[in-house]
Design a protein around this nucleic acid. Sequence first.
DNA 1: ACATTACTTGACGGCATGGTCAAGAAGTTA
DNA 2: TAACTTCTTGACCATGCCGTCAAGTAATGT
Lengths: 186, 186
Amino acid sequence: MRADARRNVEGIRQAALDVFRTGGLTTPLDEVAKAAGVSKGTIYHRFGSRTGLINAVVEELVAERIAGIIEAVDALDGPPLLRFEEYLLRTWLLQYDEPAANDVLMRVLPESEPLTELFWRACQFGSRLLYEAQAAGVVRADITPDDLVYLILERGVIARACDQQTRDDYRRRLDFVLRGLRTFRM
Amino acid sequence: MRADARRNVEGIRQAALDVFRTGGLTTPLDEVAKAAGVSKGTIYHRFGSRTGLINAVVEELVAERIAGIIEAVDALDGPPLLRFEEYLLRTWLLQYDEPAANDVLMRVLPESEPLTELFWRACQFGSRLLYEAQAAGVVRADITPDDLVYLILERGVIARACDQQTRDDYRRRLDFVLRGLRTFRM
DNA sequence: ACATTACTTGACGGCATGGTCAAGAAGTTA
DNA sequence: TAACTTCTTGACCATGCCGTCAAGTAATGT
Protein backbone atom coordinates (compact mmCIF):
# COMPACT_ATOMS: atom_id res chain seq x y z
CA MET A 1 0.00 0.00 0.00
CA ARG A 2 1.36 3.34 -1.01
CA ALA A 3 2.04 6.01 1.58
CA ASP A 4 -0.67 8.40 0.36
CA ALA A 5 -3.18 5.59 0.36
CA ARG A 6 -2.41 4.72 3.93
CA ARG A 7 -2.71 8.36 4.89
CA ASN A 8 -6.06 8.60 3.18
CA VAL A 9 -7.47 5.48 4.76
CA GLU A 10 -6.66 6.87 8.16
CA GLY A 11 -8.01 10.28 7.27
CA ILE A 12 -11.24 8.78 6.04
CA ARG A 13 -11.65 6.74 9.20
CA GLN A 14 -11.18 9.80 11.36
CA ALA A 15 -13.58 11.81 9.23
CA ALA A 16 -16.13 9.03 9.36
CA LEU A 17 -15.87 8.86 13.13
CA ASP A 18 -16.47 12.55 13.29
CA VAL A 19 -19.27 12.79 10.78
CA PHE A 20 -21.08 9.61 11.80
CA ARG A 21 -20.87 10.58 15.46
CA THR A 22 -23.01 13.62 14.95
CA GLY A 23 -25.06 12.63 11.94
CA GLY A 24 -25.58 8.91 12.30
CA LEU A 25 -24.61 6.09 10.01
CA THR A 26 -26.76 7.24 7.11
CA THR A 27 -25.01 10.53 6.57
CA PRO A 28 -24.18 10.98 2.86
CA LEU A 29 -20.70 9.74 2.11
CA ASP A 30 -19.92 12.98 0.30
CA GLU A 31 -19.82 14.61 3.68
CA VAL A 32 -17.32 12.12 4.97
CA ALA A 33 -15.31 12.65 1.80
CA LYS A 34 -15.34 16.41 2.20
CA ALA A 35 -14.35 16.15 5.85
CA ALA A 36 -11.48 13.85 4.90
CA GLY A 37 -10.38 16.04 2.02
CA VAL A 38 -10.74 13.28 -0.54
CA SER A 39 -13.35 12.43 -3.12
CA LYS A 40 -16.21 10.05 -2.73
CA GLY A 41 -14.59 7.66 -5.16
CA THR A 42 -11.65 7.14 -2.86
CA ILE A 43 -13.91 5.98 -0.06
CA TYR A 44 -15.51 3.40 -2.29
CA HIS A 45 -12.14 2.37 -3.60
CA ARG A 46 -10.75 1.88 -0.11
CA PHE A 47 -13.73 0.53 1.78
CA GLY A 48 -15.83 -1.03 -0.93
CA SER A 49 -19.13 0.35 0.27
CA ARG A 50 -20.80 2.35 2.94
CA THR A 51 -21.13 -0.80 5.01
CA GLY A 52 -17.44 -1.47 4.61
CA LEU A 53 -16.61 1.94 5.96
CA ILE A 54 -19.00 1.56 8.84
CA ASN A 55 -17.59 -1.81 9.79
CA ALA A 56 -14.18 -0.19 9.87
CA VAL A 57 -15.21 2.41 12.43
CA VAL A 58 -18.06 0.86 14.36
CA GLU A 59 -15.89 -0.56 17.08
CA GLU A 60 -14.39 2.77 17.98
CA LEU A 61 -17.59 4.62 17.24
CA VAL A 62 -20.26 2.65 19.04
CA ALA A 63 -19.14 -0.65 20.52
CA GLU A 64 -17.50 0.81 23.54
CA ARG A 65 -20.48 2.98 24.38
CA ILE A 66 -22.82 0.03 24.42
CA ALA A 67 -20.33 -2.18 26.17
CA GLY A 68 -19.81 0.59 28.68
CA ILE A 69 -23.46 0.66 29.57
CA ILE A 70 -23.64 -3.09 29.91
CA GLU A 71 -20.60 -3.18 32.17
CA ALA A 72 -21.74 -0.28 34.29
CA VAL A 73 -25.18 -1.76 34.86
CA ASP A 74 -23.74 -5.21 35.37
CA ALA A 75 -21.47 -3.86 38.09
CA LEU A 76 -24.39 -2.12 39.74
CA ASP A 77 -25.51 -4.06 42.73
CA GLY A 78 -29.02 -3.06 43.51
CA PRO A 79 -32.46 -4.56 43.31
CA PRO A 80 -33.47 -6.08 39.96
CA LEU A 81 -35.89 -3.28 39.20
CA LEU A 82 -33.19 -0.68 39.54
CA ARG A 83 -30.83 -2.61 37.31
CA PHE A 84 -33.47 -3.19 34.68
CA GLU A 85 -34.63 0.39 34.63
CA GLU A 86 -31.15 1.79 34.76
CA TYR A 87 -30.21 -0.23 31.72
CA LEU A 88 -33.20 0.90 29.72
CA LEU A 89 -32.70 4.47 30.79
CA ARG A 90 -29.06 4.57 29.80
CA THR A 91 -29.74 2.88 26.52
CA TRP A 92 -32.55 5.27 25.70
CA LEU A 93 -30.41 8.26 26.55
CA LEU A 94 -27.60 6.89 24.42
CA GLN A 95 -30.06 6.71 21.57
CA TYR A 96 -30.83 10.37 22.06
CA ASP A 97 -27.22 11.43 22.46
CA GLU A 98 -25.60 9.37 19.73
CA PRO A 99 -27.34 8.95 16.41
CA ALA A 100 -24.78 6.35 15.38
CA ALA A 101 -25.45 4.17 18.40
CA ASN A 102 -29.12 4.62 17.73
CA ASP A 103 -28.67 3.39 14.18
CA VAL A 104 -27.04 0.27 15.51
CA LEU A 105 -29.87 -0.38 17.96
CA MET A 106 -32.41 0.31 15.24
CA ARG A 107 -30.78 -2.14 12.87
CA VAL A 108 -30.47 0.43 10.14
CA LEU A 109 -27.84 -1.73 8.45
CA PRO A 110 -29.01 -5.32 8.91
CA GLU A 111 -26.39 -6.55 6.47
CA SER A 112 -23.49 -5.55 8.67
CA GLU A 113 -22.30 -8.36 10.89
CA PRO A 114 -20.47 -6.31 13.50
CA LEU A 115 -23.57 -4.18 13.93
CA THR A 116 -25.83 -7.18 14.21
CA GLU A 117 -23.50 -8.66 16.77
CA LEU A 118 -23.54 -5.48 18.83
CA PHE A 119 -27.28 -5.30 18.64
CA TRP A 120 -27.70 -8.81 19.92
CA ARG A 121 -25.35 -8.29 22.79
CA ALA A 122 -27.46 -5.35 23.91
CA CYS A 123 -30.68 -7.32 23.51
CA GLN A 124 -29.48 -10.33 25.38
CA PHE A 125 -28.26 -8.35 28.32
CA GLY A 126 -31.59 -6.58 28.42
CA SER A 127 -33.45 -9.86 28.33
CA ARG A 128 -31.44 -11.12 31.25
CA LEU A 129 -32.30 -8.09 33.33
CA LEU A 130 -35.91 -8.39 32.28
CA TYR A 131 -36.00 -11.99 33.34
CA GLU A 132 -34.47 -11.21 36.72
CA ALA A 133 -36.85 -8.34 37.32
CA GLN A 134 -39.82 -10.46 36.38
CA ALA A 135 -38.60 -13.26 38.61
CA ALA A 136 -38.52 -10.76 41.45
CA GLY A 137 -42.07 -9.79 40.59
CA VAL A 138 -41.32 -6.13 40.07
CA VAL A 139 -41.88 -5.95 36.35
CA ARG A 140 -45.02 -6.98 34.48
CA ALA A 141 -44.91 -10.66 33.68
CA ASP A 142 -46.47 -10.25 30.25
CA ILE A 143 -43.53 -8.36 28.80
CA THR A 144 -41.51 -10.48 26.42
CA PRO A 145 -37.95 -10.04 25.21
CA ASP A 146 -39.49 -9.04 21.90
CA ASP A 147 -41.34 -6.27 23.64
CA LEU A 148 -38.03 -5.11 24.98
CA VAL A 149 -36.55 -4.97 21.52
CA TYR A 150 -39.52 -2.94 20.45
CA LEU A 151 -39.25 -0.57 23.38
CA ILE A 152 -35.73 0.20 22.24
CA LEU A 153 -36.63 0.37 18.58
CA GLU A 154 -39.49 2.71 19.41
CA ARG A 155 -37.32 5.04 21.36
CA GLY A 156 -34.88 5.05 18.47
CA VAL A 157 -37.51 6.05 15.98
CA ILE A 158 -38.65 8.75 18.35
CA ALA A 159 -35.18 10.07 19.01
CA ARG A 160 -34.66 10.36 15.27
CA ALA A 161 -37.95 11.93 14.36
CA CYS A 162 -38.76 14.11 17.35
CA ASP A 163 -35.51 15.99 17.49
CA GLN A 164 -37.19 19.24 18.51
CA GLN A 165 -37.71 18.05 22.04
CA THR A 166 -35.07 18.95 24.57
CA ARG A 167 -33.06 16.28 26.26
CA ASP A 168 -34.77 17.14 29.55
CA ASP A 169 -38.24 16.61 28.11
CA TYR A 170 -37.14 13.41 26.45
CA ARG A 171 -35.68 12.24 29.73
CA ARG A 172 -38.74 13.16 31.75
CA ARG A 173 -41.00 11.27 29.40
CA LEU A 174 -38.91 8.14 29.74
CA ASP A 175 -40.19 7.91 33.29
CA PHE A 176 -43.71 7.45 32.01
CA VAL A 177 -42.61 4.51 29.96
CA LEU A 178 -40.66 2.90 32.76
CA ARG A 179 -43.62 3.24 35.08
CA GLY A 180 -45.74 1.38 32.60
CA LEU A 181 -43.49 -1.65 32.79
CA ARG A 182 -43.63 -2.08 36.54
CA THR A 183 -46.08 -4.29 38.29
CA PHE A 184 -48.81 -2.50 40.20
CA ARG A 185 -48.35 -1.04 43.64
CA MET A 186 -44.89 0.24 42.92
CA MET B 1 -65.87 24.67 -16.23
CA ARG B 2 -65.97 22.19 -19.05
CA ALA B 3 -67.63 18.82 -18.63
CA ASP B 4 -64.43 16.80 -18.91
CA ALA B 5 -62.74 19.01 -16.37
CA ARG B 6 -65.53 18.49 -13.89
CA ARG B 7 -65.33 14.76 -14.46
CA ASN B 8 -61.60 14.80 -13.89
CA VAL B 9 -61.78 16.83 -10.71
CA GLU B 10 -64.19 14.31 -9.27
CA GLY B 11 -62.11 11.41 -10.51
CA ILE B 12 -59.01 12.83 -8.96
CA ARG B 13 -60.75 13.38 -5.64
CA GLN B 14 -61.92 9.79 -5.57
CA ALA B 15 -58.50 8.50 -6.53
CA ALA B 16 -56.89 10.66 -3.87
CA LEU B 17 -59.28 9.33 -1.24
CA ASP B 18 -58.36 5.84 -2.25
CA VAL B 19 -54.64 6.25 -2.54
CA PHE B 20 -54.17 8.51 0.48
CA ARG B 21 -56.30 6.21 2.60
CA THR B 22 -53.86 3.37 2.26
CA GLY B 23 -50.62 5.19 1.65
CA GLY B 24 -50.90 8.36 3.69
CA LEU B 25 -50.76 11.97 2.62
CA THR B 26 -47.22 11.79 1.33
CA THR B 27 -47.87 9.23 -1.39
CA PRO B 28 -46.37 10.40 -4.70
CA LEU B 29 -48.92 12.30 -6.74
CA ASP B 30 -48.09 10.18 -9.76
CA GLU B 31 -49.89 7.36 -8.04
CA VAL B 32 -52.98 9.44 -7.55
CA ALA B 33 -52.75 10.49 -11.19
CA LYS B 34 -52.43 6.92 -12.37
CA ALA B 35 -55.35 5.83 -10.23
CA ALA B 36 -57.45 8.65 -11.62
CA GLY B 37 -56.41 7.95 -15.19
CA VAL B 38 -55.04 11.43 -15.74
CA SER B 39 -51.58 12.90 -15.77
CA LYS B 40 -49.82 14.54 -12.88
CA GLY B 41 -50.06 17.88 -14.63
CA THR B 42 -53.83 17.82 -14.45
CA ILE B 43 -53.74 17.47 -10.70
CA TYR B 44 -51.52 20.49 -10.35
CA HIS B 45 -53.65 22.40 -12.82
CA ARG B 46 -56.82 21.60 -10.90
CA PHE B 47 -55.69 21.69 -7.30
CA GLY B 48 -52.65 23.92 -7.43
CA SER B 49 -50.48 21.79 -5.22
CA ARG B 50 -50.37 18.65 -3.14
CA THR B 51 -51.68 20.66 -0.22
CA GLY B 52 -54.54 21.91 -2.35
CA LEU B 53 -55.53 18.39 -3.21
CA ILE B 54 -55.27 17.27 0.38
CA ASN B 55 -57.40 20.13 1.58
CA ALA B 56 -59.99 19.08 -0.95
CA VAL B 57 -60.26 15.56 0.44
CA VAL B 58 -59.26 15.83 4.07
CA GLU B 59 -62.78 16.32 5.34
CA GLU B 60 -64.06 13.12 3.82
CA LEU B 61 -60.79 11.31 4.37
CA VAL B 62 -59.93 12.05 7.96
CA ALA B 63 -62.11 14.61 9.67
CA GLU B 64 -64.99 12.30 10.32
CA ARG B 65 -62.77 9.61 11.77
CA ILE B 66 -61.29 11.94 14.32
CA ALA B 67 -64.62 13.60 15.00
CA GLY B 68 -66.10 10.14 15.40
CA ILE B 69 -63.66 9.23 18.12
CA ILE B 70 -64.22 12.49 19.94
CA GLU B 71 -67.98 12.06 19.84
CA ALA B 72 -67.89 8.44 20.86
CA VAL B 73 -65.66 9.10 23.82
CA ASP B 74 -67.56 12.22 24.73
CA ALA B 75 -70.76 10.21 24.81
CA LEU B 76 -69.15 7.59 26.99
CA ASP B 77 -70.20 7.99 30.55
CA GLY B 78 -67.69 6.31 32.71
CA PRO B 79 -65.00 7.30 35.16
CA PRO B 80 -62.47 9.87 33.96
CA LEU B 81 -59.70 7.31 33.68
CA LEU B 82 -61.72 5.18 31.34
CA ARG B 83 -62.60 8.12 29.15
CA PHE B 84 -59.03 9.35 29.03
CA GLU B 85 -57.58 5.97 28.23
CA GLU B 86 -60.28 5.11 25.76
CA TYR B 87 -59.57 8.28 23.86
CA LEU B 88 -55.85 7.65 23.70
CA LEU B 89 -56.40 4.06 22.75
CA ARG B 90 -58.75 4.84 19.91
CA THR B 91 -56.53 7.61 18.64
CA TRP B 92 -53.49 5.39 18.71
CA LEU B 93 -55.29 2.62 16.90
CA LEU B 94 -56.52 5.09 14.31
CA GLN B 95 -52.92 6.06 13.76
CA TYR B 96 -52.08 2.45 13.07
CA ASP B 97 -55.07 1.81 10.87
CA GLU B 98 -55.09 4.97 8.82
CA PRO B 99 -51.84 6.45 7.62
CA ALA B 100 -53.66 9.54 6.44
CA ALA B 101 -55.14 10.24 9.84
CA ASN B 102 -51.74 9.62 11.30
CA ASP B 103 -50.23 12.20 9.00
CA VAL B 104 -52.73 14.73 10.26
CA LEU B 105 -51.94 13.96 13.89
CA MET B 106 -48.24 14.09 13.15
CA ARG B 107 -48.53 17.47 11.48
CA VAL B 108 -46.87 16.27 8.33
CA LEU B 109 -48.31 19.25 6.47
CA PRO B 110 -48.11 22.15 8.90
CA GLU B 111 -49.01 24.60 6.14
CA SER B 112 -52.48 23.20 5.65
CA GLU B 113 -55.09 25.04 7.68
CA PRO B 114 -57.78 22.35 7.67
CA LEU B 115 -55.25 19.84 8.91
CA THR B 116 -53.98 22.15 11.61
CA GLU B 117 -57.52 22.80 12.70
CA LEU B 118 -58.24 19.09 12.93
CA PHE B 119 -55.09 18.48 14.85
CA TRP B 120 -55.96 21.12 17.41
CA ARG B 121 -59.43 19.82 17.91
CA ALA B 122 -57.99 16.41 18.75
CA CYS B 123 -55.43 17.92 21.10
CA GLN B 124 -57.90 20.06 22.94
CA PHE B 125 -60.30 17.27 23.56
CA GLY B 126 -57.42 15.18 24.83
CA SER B 127 -56.30 17.93 27.15
CA ARG B 128 -59.78 18.19 28.57
CA LEU B 129 -59.85 14.48 29.35
CA LEU B 130 -56.39 14.69 30.80
CA TYR B 131 -57.42 17.53 33.04
CA GLU B 132 -60.47 15.68 34.26
CA ALA B 133 -58.52 12.52 34.91
CA GLN B 134 -55.87 14.42 36.79
CA ALA B 135 -58.51 16.23 38.81
CA ALA B 136 -59.86 12.84 39.79
CA GLY B 137 -56.37 11.85 40.82
CA VAL B 138 -56.19 8.82 38.58
CA VAL B 139 -53.56 10.07 36.15
CA ARG B 140 -50.10 11.34 37.03
CA ALA B 141 -50.23 15.00 37.88
CA ASP B 142 -46.95 15.79 36.17
CA ILE B 143 -48.23 15.04 32.70
CA THR B 144 -48.77 18.19 30.69
CA PRO B 145 -50.90 18.74 27.59
CA ASP B 146 -47.61 18.96 25.71
CA ASP B 147 -46.75 15.49 26.91
CA LEU B 148 -50.04 14.34 25.50
CA VAL B 149 -49.22 15.81 22.11
CA TYR B 150 -45.93 14.00 22.26
CA LEU B 151 -47.52 10.72 23.24
CA ILE B 152 -49.60 10.94 20.09
CA LEU B 153 -46.75 12.13 17.93
CA GLU B 154 -44.60 9.30 19.24
CA ARG B 155 -47.16 6.68 18.43
CA GLY B 156 -47.45 8.19 14.97
CA VAL B 157 -43.78 7.91 14.30
CA ILE B 158 -43.85 4.36 15.56
CA ALA B 159 -46.86 3.35 13.51
CA ARG B 160 -45.08 4.66 10.44
CA ALA B 161 -41.69 3.17 11.06
CA CYS B 162 -42.47 -0.12 12.77
CA ASP B 163 -44.93 -1.44 10.23
CA GLN B 164 -43.73 -5.02 10.63
CA GLN B 165 -45.48 -5.42 13.94
CA THR B 166 -48.94 -6.89 13.85
CA ARG B 167 -51.90 -4.88 15.00
CA ASP B 168 -52.28 -7.20 17.98
CA ASP B 169 -48.75 -6.62 19.15
CA TYR B 170 -49.11 -2.91 18.62
CA ARG B 171 -52.33 -2.96 20.59
CA ARG B 172 -50.89 -5.01 23.41
CA ARG B 173 -47.97 -2.65 23.82
CA LEU B 174 -50.28 0.32 24.10
CA ASP B 175 -51.31 -1.06 27.47
CA PHE B 176 -47.80 -0.62 28.75
CA VAL B 177 -47.90 3.03 27.84
CA LEU B 178 -51.30 3.63 29.35
CA ARG B 179 -50.21 2.02 32.58
CA GLY B 180 -47.32 4.41 32.77
CA LEU B 181 -49.64 7.37 32.83
CA ARG B 182 -51.75 6.25 35.75
CA THR B 183 -51.06 7.23 39.30
CA PHE B 184 -49.70 4.49 41.50
CA ARG B 185 -51.85 1.88 43.18
CA MET B 186 -54.03 1.33 40.17
C1' DA C 1 -68.07 22.90 -39.72
C1' DC C 2 -65.14 25.87 -37.88
C1' DA C 3 -63.21 29.02 -34.64
C1' DT C 4 -62.44 29.65 -30.01
C1' DT C 5 -61.34 28.61 -25.71
C1' DA C 6 -60.51 25.30 -22.07
C1' DC C 7 -58.07 21.48 -20.90
C1' DT C 8 -54.50 17.80 -20.71
C1' DT C 9 -50.20 15.94 -21.50
C1' DG C 10 -45.60 14.22 -20.64
C1' DA C 11 -41.16 15.66 -21.33
C1' DC C 12 -38.27 18.59 -18.78
C1' DG C 13 -35.36 20.86 -15.18
C1' DG C 14 -34.34 20.69 -10.36
C1' DC C 15 -32.80 18.40 -6.21
C1' DA C 16 -30.72 14.85 -3.41
C1' DT C 17 -28.75 10.52 -3.01
C1' DG C 18 -26.04 6.10 -4.30
C1' DG C 19 -22.52 3.96 -6.59
C1' DT C 20 -19.05 3.41 -10.92
C1' DC C 21 -15.09 4.00 -13.89
C1' DA C 22 -11.95 5.92 -17.59
C1' DA C 23 -8.56 9.11 -17.45
C1' DG C 24 -5.19 11.56 -15.36
C1' DA C 25 -2.09 12.44 -11.12
C1' DA C 26 1.32 10.99 -8.09
C1' DG C 27 4.16 7.92 -5.40
C1' DT C 28 7.87 4.29 -6.12
C1' DT C 29 11.67 1.96 -8.01
C1' DA C 30 15.79 1.23 -10.66
C1' DT D 1 14.87 10.92 -14.42
C1' DA D 2 12.15 7.79 -16.65
C1' DA D 3 9.24 3.92 -16.49
C1' DC D 4 5.93 1.61 -13.83
C1' DT D 5 2.41 0.90 -10.77
C1' DT D 6 -0.87 2.52 -7.60
C1' DC D 7 -4.11 5.75 -6.46
C1' DT D 8 -7.49 9.55 -6.91
C1' DT D 9 -10.70 12.17 -9.20
C1' DG D 10 -15.14 14.02 -10.53
C1' DA D 11 -18.06 13.56 -14.18
C1' DC D 12 -21.40 10.18 -15.10
C1' DC D 13 -25.43 7.08 -14.76
C1' DA D 14 -29.35 5.62 -12.08
C1' DT D 15 -33.35 6.38 -8.93
C1' DG D 16 -37.26 8.78 -7.21
C1' DC D 17 -39.55 12.59 -6.26
C1' DC D 18 -41.44 17.58 -7.04
C1' DG D 19 -43.49 21.04 -9.75
C1' DT D 20 -43.77 23.54 -14.59
C1' DC D 21 -45.07 24.67 -19.18
C1' DA D 22 -45.10 24.68 -24.31
C1' DA D 23 -47.45 22.11 -27.34
C1' DG D 24 -51.08 19.27 -28.61
C1' DT D 25 -56.06 17.76 -27.96
C1' DA D 26 -60.85 18.14 -27.39
C1' DA D 27 -65.20 20.25 -25.87
C1' DT D 28 -68.25 24.14 -26.93
C1' DG D 29 -70.77 27.86 -29.22
C1' DT D 30 -72.36 29.86 -33.32
